[in-house]
């Protein structure tokens, strides 16, 4: 019973983070800000689900089941990479950013920061 509650909690936390991340994708005003939602909240959302799944399958009496952790590990490695590449592409295409975005790139080299 206790296990059920813990698993439920992790599943719900995971789903909540995924939902919040996706909501950020909808309502934040510019691309660079939207980038934050998926890279962080959604990744942790999957993480929460997977912890729930690990606990669930490990308590089914068939030994410990850890292979789900590979997915989290993989996402933790790839999410920053795809976020970085997307940001780079957005800078390359000079996507609009909200007015108030401050640009504190001190070394004003050529390229997007010197815009």
């Amino acid at each position: 019973m206790l296990v059920e509650i813990i698993v439920s909690l992790f599943l719900l936390i995971g789903a909540a983070f995924a939902l919040i991340g996706s909501w950020g994708l909808v309502h934040l005003p510019d691309f660079y800000m939207r980038l934050h939602g998926p890279t962080k909240a959604t990744t942790l959302g999957v993480g929460g689900m997977i912890v729930g799944s690990v606990i669930f399958f490990s308590t089914q009496g068939e030994g410990i089941s850890l292979h789900e952790l590979l997915i989290t590990l993989f996402l933790f490695i790839t999410a920053p990479v795809s976020a970085h590449m997307l940001a780079k592409a957005a800078l390359h295409l000079q996507l609009e950013r909200v007015e108030k975005t401050r640009d504190v790139a001190r070394k004003n080299t050529s390229g997007p920061c010197g815009k």
Partner: peptide, 18 residues
């Protein structure tokens, strides 16, 4: 813009994993 769509698809597959 295109990056927005790619980002959304990216999020979609992560959500699908969940």
């Amino acid at each position: 813009d295109l990056p927005d769509r790619i980002l959304a698809l990216d999020t979609m597959y992560i959500n699908t994993i969940a």
